[in-house]
Design a protein around this nucleic acid. Structure first.
Length: 423
RNA sequence: GGUGAGGUGGGUGAGUGGCUAAAACCAGUAGUUUGCUAAACUGCCGUACGGGUCAAACUGUACCGAGGGUUCGAAUCCCUCCCUCACCGCCA
């Protein structure tokens, strides 16, 4: 959520930047400022009258104590008159405030100055590529065939148990998941991130704070009996650790990592895009999250990008890093880098991580603040990234490393998996 | 799920209708003093939204789990809900 003060003081600049995100309702900015003006005016009126009531009430107390009952009664009558005017003011204020709030949450975060212009994924900018695309044998097959061949995942039974998009990992397939999660978590804790294992369902307040509500309600599974949402990413519960919190300056940066299953309804899409592990409703992911001093958030962003990159390098996968263009960015993000790995058998890039700086967009919703060196209250900045989402990593590991002798695993996984190859 | 107790500021904790934004203590912070691996004393020390100011000072309103209600006036009384703790039940 953007701060009204920002909209008020930089109205034109805000509209200009919203345009980079291809946001369709720039007029909301003016509406919000107008609503806020109205809010202020109403509050001034209300406060002045309430002050009179408070003063009179104290007076009544003194008069009663002094036994001057009649004087007290006459003031009471006066107070009753003021209070009558207070009621409609209060209602009006609540109405305007709600309208202001409801409108404010419709505005996406402003893209940072580094965000490239563009509307669609084709306009994302490739920042760099790394690793080497393997040259596969002529009979190389996509991961869904390899999964069958080595009996790693049973999609059909997963569909029977729950529905399509809920894979049932089996045998070495299941063990590979465990190995990857372990490896990723250790990689992150070695870099100074504190490990958490969060709840996998969250309440409404938490879903709102990180921006899933009201924007993406339909994308989450909703347990209506208790009004809980299944998390689409560990970002939601973990970032919410610091909801309604005032941090001390020295506590920053806060670095957290967490494994969680991720649940996504993701309606739409078809065909090749959704085959095998390309798109599923439940998948495993390890996430990294930081809450930092605003001055340092862009340096931290670079650090997180480098961290994820080194993780990919260690997996010996060909990858590329994209800077998303305005039109392809998420609602809450100020800048996003996507990581994609090359799936050699499908001959396409698959997204495996997304590292974003949210600046104060989430922390403003969450009321996550800190006291700076001068003792002044400031909103912290929040960032997060995947390190990494498993399904597509698995798809690429399988496809890129297939051979007549089985699937070779990168060195770093040997100890975790207990073998050097599958098959 | 049942019964009971309780939810007050960073922490402990007082406060059962007005003089309480809220005692006291601890922590924190600024300073004084003595001096030495620290002590003593003094001041300051919640948040939000307004007004005010270059910025302060100053000032208004709200907030004592959340939301309603009673009252001229509520942390304090009433109602609903949430949460925590204890015991019981059920259960991995």
């Amino acid at each position: 959520m953007l701060q009204v003060s920002v909209l008020r003081n930089n109205t034109e600049e805000v509209k200009k930047r919203l345009k980079v995100k291809h946001f369709g309702q720039p007029e909301l900015v003016d509406i919000i400022v107008a609503l806020d003006n109205e809010r202020k005016k109403l509050q001034a009126d209300f406060d002045a009258t309430q002050a009179k009531v408070n003063t009179a009430s104290r007076e009544i107390g003194k008069l009663m104590a002094g036994g001057k009952k009649e004087d007290a009664e006459s003031i009471k009558n006066e107070v009753a008159g003021w209070k009558a005017t207070l009621e409609p003011l209060k209602e009006q204020m609540a109405k305007v405030e709600k309208e202001l709030q409801d409108t404010l949450v419709l505005l996406p975060n402003l893209p940072s100055a580094d965000v490239p212009e563009g509307k669609s994924p084709e306009e994302n900018v490739v920042v760099r590529e790394g690793g080497e695309k393997p040259v596969l044998a002529a009979d190389a097959v996509p991961h869904w065939d390899l999964i069958k061949q080595y009996d790693l995942i049973d999609f059909e039974t997963g569909a029977k148990i729950t529905g399509s998009g809920f894979p049932l990992y089996k045998g070495k397939g299941a063990k590979l998941q465990r190995a990857l999660v372990q490896y990723f978590l250790n990689f992150n804790t070695d870099a100074g991130y504190t490990e958490y294992l969060p709840p996998f369902m969250v309440n409404e307040a938490s879903a709102f704070a990180t921006g899933q509500l009201p924007d993406k309600e339909g994308q989450m599974y909703h347990a209506t009996a208790d009004n809980f949402y299944l998390i689409p990413t560990a970002e939601v519960p973990v970032t919410n650790i610091y909801r309604d919190t005032i941090l001390k300056w020295e506590e920053l940066p806060i670095k957290m990592t967490a494994y969680s299953p991720c649940f996504r309804r993701e309606a739409g899409s078809f065909g090749k895009d959704v085959r095998g592990l390309n798109r599923v409703h439940q998948f495993e992911k390890v996430e990294i999250i930081q809450i930092v001093d605003p001055e340092k958030s862009y340096a931290v962003l670079d650090e997180m990008v480098a961290h994820v990159e080194s993780l990919l390098v260690s997996l010996e996968l060909p990858y590329r890093i994209l800077r998303l263009c305005g039109g392809d960015m998420g609602f809450a993000s100020a800048i996003t880098y996507d990581f994609e790995v090359f799936s050699a058998a499908q001959e396409r890039w698959l997204e495996v991580s997304s590292v974003s700086n949210f600046e104060s967009f989430q922390t403003n919703r969450m009321k996550c603040r800190y006291k700076d060196a001068a003792g002044k209250m400031q909103l912290a900045h929040s960032l997060n990234g995947s390190s990494l989402a498993l399904p597509r990593i698995v798809a690429c590991l399988l496809e890129n490393n297939q051979s007549a002798e089985g699937i070779r695993l990168p060195q770093v996984l040997h100890a975790y998996f207990g073998a050097e190859k599958i098959g």
